[in-house]
């Protein structure tokens, strides 16, 4: 499995850990700075920022920034909104994208290659460049809800969810993974008379744990960090997500301690989600067996 395994002893082992740890420090130090700073008063935070004290919980340490941050903005609401929107989108995205990928990977049909090319080309379009046309579009879309027919999707959860369900990268990931699954399995099920839906549901998806985990975390990151889109389609505080909420902390005289506290708070759910998936994720992306 691993290329190097025969010489794990003594000095070499120590050297290896030292190298690994030094690199780990490079990756982790800005985040330590963030967390440590969130416990310091503004003036001290700024003065400490230029020395090693930036990483040390020294001086006047308290949770004042956290209580102030909670007073400044409805953080609980923002986190709830983000988690809700992110969670629902991730689930729907996994379903819709894997269905499409299933079709592209296993079925022969007219128009397949054209459609797949279009889907991959959508990867090139940065969202910023289509935001306004999309805004004009969703503001005119009809919706049938409990209260009957209405026009316009602004100020809702659905406007933050539905446009983001399908995306080229997720479909592409699933397609690549499915291509590595043994085709005999599919054809055998077909011969036995299984419907396509049954094959998707009973044969393919149970084998797709790794790619599901991969796609889930990538989608989670994209959705949780949404800023521009909710900014322009949500005017009511009730539906605002965390990254828009960050703006609450930039006033004329910015309270940096509170900013750090807020950043720490909103980073926690992602880290938690990531660490929970970590084992599955590293294992999964590792076995996704990506074939360009």
């Amino acid at each position: 499995m691993a290329a190097i395994s025969s010489d794990n002893h003594g000095l070499r082992l120590v050297t290896r850990y030292v190298v690994l740890t030094l690199i780990a420090l490079i990756f982790v130090f800005p985040l330590v700075f963030m967390v440590v700073s969130s416990f310091k008063p503004d003036l001290q935070l700024l003065r400490d920022a230029s020395s090693i004290r930036a990483f040390l919980p020294v001086g006047d340490i308290s949770t004042d920034n956290y209580s102030a941050a909670f007073e400044r903005a409805p953080i609980g609401l923002f986190v709830f909104n983000s988690v809700l929107v992110t969670g629902v989108t991730v689930l729907l995205s996994l379903l819709i994208c894997s269905l499409a990928a299933f079709s592209f990977a296993f079925l022969e049909w007219k128009g397949r290659n054209t459609l797949l090319s279009i889907i991959i080309a959508t990867l090139i379009i940065p969202f910023e460049t289509i935001a306004i046309p999309l805004l004009l579009l969703v503001s005119k879309l009809p919706w049938i809800g409990l209260e009957g027919l209405s026009v316009g999707w602004l100020n809702s959860y659905r406007v933050q969810i539905i446009p983001w369900i399908a995306d080229g990268l997720t479909i592409f990931l699933f397609v690549q993974f499915f291509k590595d699954l043994p085709r005999d399995l599919i054809e055998a099920s077909r011969v036995e008379g299984a419907s396509w839906w049954q094959i998707y549901r009973r044969v393919v998806m149970p084998l797709s744990g790794p790619v599901i985990a991969t796609a889930a975390i990538l989608k989670f990151l994209v959705m949780y960090n949404q800023y521009l889109w909710p900014l322009i389609v949500v005017q009511e505080e009730t539906y605002r997500p965390v990254m828009v909420g960050l703006q609450y902390f930039f006033q004329l005289n910015t309270a940096w301690g509170e900013v750090m506290a807020y950043l720490t708070i909103i980073t926690v759910p992602v880290l938690a989600f990531y660490l929970a998936l970590q084992r599955a994720f590293i294992a999964s992306i590792a076995s996704t067996g990506v074939k360009g």
Binding site: L135, V138, S139, L231, V233, G245, Q247, F250
Partner: peptide, 21 residues
């Protein structure tokens, strides 16, 4: 009253105006 953070207030208004809201 509906409050917006100052840093993104103008963007919010322009977007809402475009969308007729």
């Amino acid at each position: 009253v509906e409050s917006f953070p100052q840093g993104s207030y103008n963007d919010s208004v322009v977007a809402a105006a475009l969308a007729g809201n």
